[in-house]
Nucleic acid binder design. Sequence first.
RNA 1: GCGAAAGUGGCGGAAUUGGCAGACGCGCUGGACUUAGGAUCCAGUGGGCAUAGCUCGUAGGGGUUCAAGUCCCCUCUUUCGCACCA
Length: 826
Amino acid sequence: MEYPFEVIEKKWQKKWQEKRVFKADDNSPKPKYYVLSMFPYPSGALHMGHVSNYSIGDAISRYKMMQGFNVMQPMGYDAFGMPAENFAIQHNSHPRLTTESNMNIMQDQFTAMGFGFDWDRKVATCTPDYYRWGQWIFKRLYEKGLVYKKSSFVNWCDECQTVLANEQVEDGSCWRCSSVVRQKEMEQWYFKITEYAEELLDFSKVIDWPERVMSMQKNWIGRSTGTEIDFKLEGSDEKITVFTTRPDTIFGVTFMAIPPEHPLSRRWLKEPTVEPKLVEFCEKVLNEDKISRSAEDTTKEGVFTGKYCINPVNGDKVQIWITNYVLMDYGTGAVMAVPAHDQRDFEFAKKYDIPMKMVIQNIEKTLVLEEMTAAYTEPGVLVNSAQFDDMESVASKTAISQWINEKGMGKETITYRLRDWGVSRQRYWGNPIPVIYCDKCGTVLVPDKDLPVLLPDNVQVGKTTNNPLLSVEEWVNCTCPECGGPARRETDTMDTFVDSSWYFARYADPKNENLPFSKEKAEQWLPVDQYIGGIEHACMHLIYARFFHKFLRDIGMVDCDEPFARLLTQGMVINMGSKMSKSKGNGVDPQEYIDRYGSDTIRVFMLFASPPEKDVDWNDEAVGGSFRFLNRVWRLIENNLDVIKTNNKLYNGDVTLSKQIAELRFSTHNMIKRWHEDIENKMQFNTAIAAIMEHLNCVTAIKDTSILTTDEKAVYAESCMMIVRLLYPFAPHICEELYEMTGNTGFVYEAGIPEFNPQYLVHDMMTVVVQINGKIRGKIDVPAGSDEETIKAEALNIDKIKTLLEGLEIKKVIVVQNKLVSIVAK
RNA sequence: GCGAAAGUGGCGGAAUUGGCAGACGCGCUGGACUUAGGAUCCAGUGGGCAUAGCUCGUAGGGGUUCAAGUCCCCUCUUUCGCACCA
């Protein structure tokens, strides 16, 4: 017989809703606890990843409710984005319709899973009352000089007709349609996230983040200290600035390398005397896609420009080459090439027969320039470096850098790998950028009172090769807010990562019509105490959100430094060793299993299968195991209703119990202790559940309760009820039902959090292991707390030990109280 | 190449201020009850052997220690992140 999960899950979902159990109260006197799981993209169905993610969040949330916190666990939808638009194109529909219908379907699934979300705080990023405030924040960023527009080369997908972020390009192809991505020069709006690079590297204000995520972000931001050095162009006052981390090699520069995108390259290409092969080369490189151009095995190529610059430290004439291996958007976009001491420059110089100059000699003084087959990049002693000769190369870095600074030839500086965030997207289904272009007034921001710039519905999605919004003429054409003359709207929309960069703050004050959220509400609820989501967001969403939060702090909207105090990155749900995906055909639909076993079983399986940050391997048979476990709990309570009902809470603690029942009491309190530790310290729900299973085994070993005394029945009743209460965060529906069946009123969490009694965790007798030379040879039971001498004597008195020790000399005996005796004998 | 994490039964995974390796679950084997079992219950389940016991065993090799999955050194493998970042 299976327990009636279908009936009871519906029943309790309804009750929770009726009693507003998960409503986060703005006026509660209880301390707040904000649990947040990353909101989903409304794809139309919850997948196993969501179920796993939200089962973790819900377990934490309900645990905190038991502890008496005023818990806020909100949920919403990351509802803008390209998939909806592409789907609409294919099915000749409208993104708004499909998105709304998808959100409705998912809402039903959320309900069926019974997750404890406060739906009154729901946020859907595609609604005007949400995206209005994204536009508002865009304007605040702009006012602070953190938004700018520039032309640069970006990843462009012809098929999808939009710019792609770097992470959306896989092996040179579009992640969605697999067509080849090319580089296209476009005007784009950028957020100056680099302004916050230094602070984003500082994690001292987070409480608990995975080391892994922090190091990924540090790596991504890529702080690098070095020196900027100015090289004057020959016969001109104009200069070309390089960034180098190796000022110690400055005397060894033999050429200058710049990319085709460099302003000087672009200027020289337009000169009438330009060599055709230079133009040809630049065109070739610029048309190459970013991925293959930057691949490690790409051959280094270049063309000499015929121009020279002057090395400021020694007046050397330096050839300027346009090359394919220098990046325009890192450092200054120009590299001083030192072939003798940089492998890339070495390869290039060899290929084009450019001179080399050795300026660092190894300690043994055995380096010969003509015999080098690779650049010498190790530390050494400076040579050919004027007054710096004989200086140790590492120490010379500072000395040379200071000297350069004093002479006004350059300065020490810090460069980041992190680039400014390009937020323009040439697509329809996103947040309109609140900008108007006027022939007279130039770029004008839409006044606050006119926000939001509404996304029009009557757009011809997919019918144009330009921005879809261009097709809505009555929307594009507008009047200039400043001069009242004719003007045009910006037709790019914002990257959807902008929408998700502040949603956690909107949940604190979701209905606010005057601001994104009030300062008071933000102070009340932020930071998020526990954030849960996938590791794949480590370098994107989680950096963007920290950036936004710090900006919002700087304009006085929030007062904490970090948005997410604790972060848990949950693993993926995989099937037969690989990630579930449609293309692999190994996806598993949660709904099928909700129907078969109920949501409590799915939750228990997810949480029990492995620790939350590890991948969960989906296993049909093991799910059945979780179901069996819940059935065993159900039967235990159902079969013992009388004993539990009449004896629960009767136990007064100070009575004699049979050995078995004393052991049962130990098991109960041991379970409570382990449950607390596993959840509180390690968030290891798998071992917390294992502790409950072990205890269940202990309870079910008692077959006949009729022979028990009243006190023993009370202990038994407690041992049963504790299962119901401790299982609650993981399998809430069945626990609410069992709690009610056993004569309780209200909800399980209202009973508070069970605490163990340390008194019941003390055993009278302890088993001590006896080792001879490290091997276990026997065991003894001794009264707890026996002194070392007694234990030692007991151990040496075991017949078997005596036999084994015959003819041996005891060198040493180590006694560890309550644990073991280790005898060293020869 | 650089950086990080990890390697424990047939499987998912427990156990680290060093102290009985394999908790809990899946699977498997045998049994009970059954017309039946994808139900339930009981027993067993790391390998080997001369099987009341002994012995080997936490990727491999060395070391420290009375005692090592846990600490130290070396090697291998896997996963993830970054990858011409000057």
